[in-house]
Write a protein that binds this DNA or RNA. Structure first.
Lengths: 211, 211
DNA sequence: TCACTTCTGTACCGAGCGGTATAGTCGAGG
DNA sequence: CCTCGACTATACCGCTCGGTACAGAAGTGA
């Protein structure tokens, strides 16, 4: 919205999106509760009053940073769902996730999980926000697979909701591995196993992979 | 070790294992950094000096609580690996994990993950300890599957290390789901999908499950 | 040039953190 | 029974937390 206001007073010396990216990286690496205001402001290159004037509170800053993370870092995973078949969509989703989780230029793993799976009661909202983000991704996955089911692109009797949860869980597990230092190759090998199994499950829609 | 010392002074009024269980639950629910000394001592029913006399520091308390957690709460998952076939071992492992993650009597999910995937730099040791615990479980899984490979109990060309990582990742993903409130049935449905896929992958060693 | 508005930087706030000194309490051995 | 030693409880330590008051700086419009 009003991002084009005619600037009544002194303009900011920092770009909002840029400092949000820096903040996201700190939350990503240290978790919400581990990320202190000092480390955040240091990484963002601004001081506390600027931070509070721009974002209001640590929690609001986190929400904004997480939203931006979702927009940017998960775009290719969402795009993967547009593959023509369910099999291709699942593989593209898992491959893109594995690449994201181990890509350079940002911390390993996934902010949605490292940000704070378990928090103290006063920060319980953070866990809920992260869980809602993951649930949205899983819902998108399920919607895609549900469409596949209607198109006859899924093995009979396979529940699209359970399949979406399976794929999402695998991806989340890869995030846990990545946070602990697993390499891209490690994760892709796991995806190889998963896709070989899914291919066996539904030979019709998979590329030829006979043993 | 010396649990049978002849009691030189005044005896403790609390049982060490019992208070470790309480401490584990707090860490489990709130994470290492979210768990304050106040909430820990309250849950354990002892005061700070007793805690420090018995365990030395918050970090040592965590290590002890985590060790005990490993002994008790993961016993059935380890036992699952003793199943006669690789297929049965994987299924038993995933089923036991899903049950553990959603069982009553303790917080949902898994301390190995909720305890602190990402911590501030000064608590980086905690993440490492948890990662080592998960790696040990994965190593046990891999050892079992490696044995299966030698016994011809694994499809040709299937890497036991990658398969172990796949199974472990799925289980960790289920833990993430459980932490966010997924039910036992939700997780078991995901296991159903996984086992159906693994069965298709290796029909020989799976129970008949034709659609 | 000058008011006006918004930003920046320093210095600070109360609260809670992890950890401890100290004094009192209580059970066992001589 | 009394001394000893390890326990418990209160009250406190320095420090860092998230958050803010205030004064000075700096662009804009008249």
């Amino acid at each position: 919205m009003g991002a084009e206001t005619p600037t009544p007073g002194r303009p900011r010396t920092f770009d909002e999106q840029t400092v949000l990216d820096r903040a996201a990286e700190v939350f990503w690496q240290q978790g919400y509760e581990g990320a202190s205001l000092s480390s955040l402001t240091k990484a963002m290159g601004i001081n506390r009053p600027s931070l509070y004037a721009a974002f209001g509170s640590k929690e609001e800053l986190f929400k904004r940073a997480f939203d931006r993370y979702h927009e940017t870092n998960l775009a290719n995973a969402r795009a993967a769902l547009e593959q023509p078949t369910a099999y291709a969509a699942i593989e593209a989703f898992l491959r893109a996730s594995a690449d994201n989780l181990t890509a350079g230029g940002h911390p390993a793993g996934c902010l949605s999980i490292q940000g704070g799976l378990a928090c103290s009661p006063e920060n319980a909202r953070i866990s809920e926000i992260l869980a809602a983000g993951r649930a949205a991704t899983e819902a998108a996955l399920e919607a895609r697979l549900s469409r596949a089911a209607k198109e006859g692109d899924l093995p009979d009797g396979l529940d699209s909701r359970a399949l979406a949860r399976f794929v999402m869980a695998l991806s989340e597990g890869h995030a846990v591995h990545a946070a602990a230092g697993a390499s891209r190759e490690d994760l892709q090998a796991s995806v190889d196993v998963a896709m070989r199994a899914v291919a066996a499950l539904h030979p019709g829609s998979a590329p030829a992979a006979s043993a």
